[in-house]
Structure formats: structure tokens, C-alpha cells
Computed example of a mutant assay.
Amino acid sequence: MECGYYDRDLCHSCTAIEVAYGRQLERKQELVRGLVDPLGSPRWLAPVASAEAGFRNKAKMVVAGEVGAPTLGILDGTRGTDLRDCPLYPAPVTRALHALGEFISRVRLLPYDVAKRRGELKHVVVTGSPEGRLMVRFMLRSTRQLPKIRENMDLLHELVPAADVVSVNLQPEHKAVIEGPEEILLTERSELVMTVNGIGLRVRPRSFFQTNTAVTERLYAQVAEWVSAADPVSVWDLYCGVGGFALHVADPAREVVGTEISPEAVASARDTARAMGLPEAGPGSVRFLADDAAATPADLPGTPELAIVNPPRRGLDASLCAWLEGSAVGHAVYSSCNAKTLARDLRRMPSLRPVEARLLDMFPHTGHYEAAVLLRRD
């Protein structure tokens, strides 16, 4: 991938950009296999490659600069570097970033000054759907400039006509955390529809969604294929997020339960299930609960025939590994963004042996990846 920002020494976020993409895939496959193979030697399917550019559906841009002349990008120390034309983003997101820069200038929003710890607008986050629809979030230090955004929503929609969802998030603290606890919705619509394999997943401002939609489609399809082959009558999707896995494995003869600690994500998952006409109880049902995945076995009756786990980088809680190891779960699918914690957790569950695996490259030009492993009880 060609990147003028990298060539001009302005941004080095893509740490592997000088490595041929085929070799990037090989290195990731070697890393993950080296950690997983000693624990069961699964059959490895061909890795899923990504487009090399235009693949990121979400742009998280630091706002810096001056009133009337903002930068949207990253910080070089405390100075803003504008990255509105970063080649990682698809055209609708890039157009939105330029339009939002104009909006911020014309409305005269005050960028946050990290060195002086003053100012208001810290970040702008733009998420794009496969259809080119957008969600726009302004991260402010306080509500001081919220009226300016409210009063100029007509201008915002003129400049960014594809913005279905617009919100303000309040992050009053001076620390390297983008989101604060309060979200203020500025549009009637509260959810962006992300169509994945024909399923219109609803995503709210504070809901997690994978940043590479095309590879996410392949991940969900792969897991659905494994679940279909195992043919369980009951499935638990732990760390279910907005319900991607759970809704992909729905079946008229199957009961599916998804659990997620984020109430916003659960609300989105329920909205999608209702839109699909899925019942909440009985055969063919898909039900979502706001719950900590580690607590799910104690909070739900019975044991599923198959469990799907998709934890954050820290991996599974030891208590959940112990429950899975001692349970009657016949199959499990583990989706991981960190092969070190994946391997640690597999060692904690020796009765669930890896039988098939696949690397999916969500994050070209970096050392990050997603790995999915099918586990079967010996």
C-alpha cells in the first residue's frame, strides 16, 4: 500500500507497511500456529486476506490545531498531524472527515490543547456502513460547546448528508481514553445499520463492532459453518457484542443465548433480532442478556451443546475456563485477537481440543489479527 503520510515521516501507525502483504500474512500465520499447534495441531484453513487499503470502517481522529484551522488525525507530541486522506479509510469516511473539518471550522469549535489542558473538542469518530451510511461522534470535554453543535445540525447534515446517527460523548478527564461515560444523541436515529452477510446488525454509538467489515463477514460465515456442521440444539454466545455470531447461527431447531456486559450492545442485538422476526423463547429463538460472560454459567440454567467465546485481548477469565473444562459442552468456538491469551486459555481447557483453525487478517500493515479455532471435547 502506498501512503504519502508514511513516506513523509508523518505517521508510522502501519508498522508493517514496508513488508509485502503476502509476507505479512505468512508472519501472522506462523505466530499463531506456533502458539496453538502444540495444544492440538488443528487443521489450518487458508488465511483470510483483507483489502490492503480502504478497509477500516471506523476513523478515530484526534482534533487539534486552532479555532477555524483544525487538524483531524494524530498527535506528534502535542502538535496535531492531519490524516484526513489516510488510505486505510473507504471513500465515504474520507469525504466525511473533510466535511467535518469544514464543519468544525465554520462553527468555530475549540480544539482541545493537550499541553495546556484546555479547549473542548478532543476527538471525532466516524463509522461507515457497507452502504456508505455514517455515524458521527464528537468527543467533548464538557457541554460548553454542545449548543453550537445542536444549533448547526442543519449545516452538519448539509455537509455530511450520509450521517444517520450523530452524538456527543463527554470525556472530562485528561487521559488517553477516548470515551467518557455520557453519550448525548443529536439525531432521531440511534443505530447505524451494518449489513453483514445479509443481516442488518444495529450498532449504537458505544457498541463495539469490528473495524474491517469485509473480513468480519468471513469470520461470521466461518463460525456459522462450524456450528452448522456440529448441529447443536443449544448455543451460548459469550461476549456477544451486537449479536453477530448469535444471529449468524440462528436456526429453527436451535435455541441461542447471547450475553454481553454492555447494555447498549445488548439493546442493539435485540433490535436486530426483532427486525429478523426471531422469537425470544423456544426452538428457533435468539435471546440476549446483559451479563458478565464469566458469570453466565451461574446465571443461566442448563449447559449449551456449543459455546462461542469472543473475549477482549486479555482472554477468558480463569473461572470461565474452569467451567468450560468441567462442563458437558461438546464443542466450542474461540475467536481471539491475541494468540498468547488464546494459548493460555486452551491450556486451561485441555479436554476441549482444537480441531480446525483459521487466521483472519482484520488489520493489515500491523501485527494485529483475528484467529478463530473450533474446539471439540475429547
Results as ranks from 00 to 15, higher is better:
residue 294 A to T: 10
residue 294 A to K: 06
residue 295 A to C: 11
residue 295 A to V: 00
residue 295 A to Y: 01
residue 295 A to T: 12
residue 296 T to D: 08
residue 296 T to M: 14
residue 297 P to V: 06
residue 297 P to M: 14
residue 298 A to T: 10
residue 298 A to Y: 11
residue 299 D to S: 15
residue 299 D to H: 15
residue 299 D to M: 13
residue 300 L to C: 14
residue 300 L to T: 03
residue 300 L to N: 09
residue 300 L to M: 09
residue 301 P to I: 02
residue 301 P to V: 06
residue 301 P to A: 05
residue 301 P to G: 07
residue 302 G to R: 06
residue 302 G to D: 12
residue 302 G to L: 05
residue 303 T to A: 07
residue 303 T to N: 01
residue 303 T to V: 15
residue 303 T to G: 01
residue 304 P to N: 09
residue 305 E to M: 05
residue 305 E to P: 02
residue 306 L to F: 04
residue 308 I to N: 05
residue 308 I to R: 08
residue 308 I to S: 04
residue 308 I to Y: 10
residue 309 V to M: 01
residue 310 N to D: 15
residue 311 P to A: 09
residue 311 P to I: 00
residue 312 P to G: 13
residue 312 P to T: 09
residue 312 P to I: 02
residue 313 R to D: 12
residue 314 R to F: 12
residue 315 G to Y: 11
residue 315 G to T: 10
residue 316 L to Y: 05
residue 316 L to N: 06
residue 316 L to T: 09
residue 316 L to Q: 02
residue 317 D to H: 08
residue 317 D to I: 10
residue 318 A to F: 01
residue 318 A to M: 12
residue 318 A to S: 14
residue 319 S to P: 10
residue 320 L to V: 02
residue 320 L to E: 09
residue 320 L to S: 13
residue 321 C to L: 11
residue 321 C to M: 08
residue 322 A to Q: 06
residue 322 A to L: 00
residue 322 A to P: 03
residue 323 W to P: 01
residue 323 W to A: 05
residue 323 W to Q: 11
residue 324 L to Y: 12
residue 324 L to Q: 03
residue 324 L to T: 13
residue 325 E to C: 04
residue 325 E to L: 03
residue 325 E to P: 00
residue 325 E to V: 00
residue 325 E to H: 06
residue 326 G to D: 03
residue 326 G to H: 02
residue 326 G to S: 14
residue 326 G to A: 15
residue 327 S to R: 03
residue 327 S to G: 07
residue 327 S to H: 00
residue 327 S to I: 08
residue 327 S to A: 15
residue 328 A to H: 09
residue 328 A to D: 15
residue 328 A to Q: 11
residue 329 V to W: 05
residue 329 V to H: 03
residue 329 V to F: 00
residue 330 G to I: 01
residue 330 G to Y: 01
residue 330 G to S: 02
residue 331 H to I: 06
residue 331 H to Y: 15
residue 331 H to V: 12
residue 331 H to T: 15
residue 331 H to K: 13
residue 332 A to N: 13
residue 332 A to W: 08
residue 332 A to D: 07
residue 332 A to I: 13
residue 333 V to N: 00
residue 335 S to F: 11
residue 336 S to V: 13
residue 337 C to H: 08
residue 337 C to E: 03
residue 338 N to V: 03
residue 338 N to G: 09
residue 339 A to N: 09
residue 339 A to D: 12
residue 340 K to L: 13
residue 341 T to A: 10
residue 341 T to V: 11
residue 341 T to C: 06
residue 341 T to W: 05
residue 342 L to N: 04
residue 342 L to P: 11
residue 342 L to R: 13
residue 342 L to D: 04
residue 343 A to Y: 07
residue 343 A to K: 04
residue 343 A to P: 01
residue 343 A to L: 05
residue 344 R to G: 08
residue 344 R to V: 03
residue 344 R to P: 04
residue 345 D to R: 05
residue 345 D to V: 00
residue 345 D to I: 13
residue 345 D to P: 14
residue 345 D to Q: 07
residue 346 L to Q: 05
residue 346 L to G: 02
residue 346 L to C: 02
residue 347 R to W: 02
residue 347 R to F: 02
residue 351 S to R: 15
residue 351 S to L: 14
residue 352 L to V: 07
residue 352 L to S: 10
residue 352 L to Q: 03
residue 352 L to A: 14
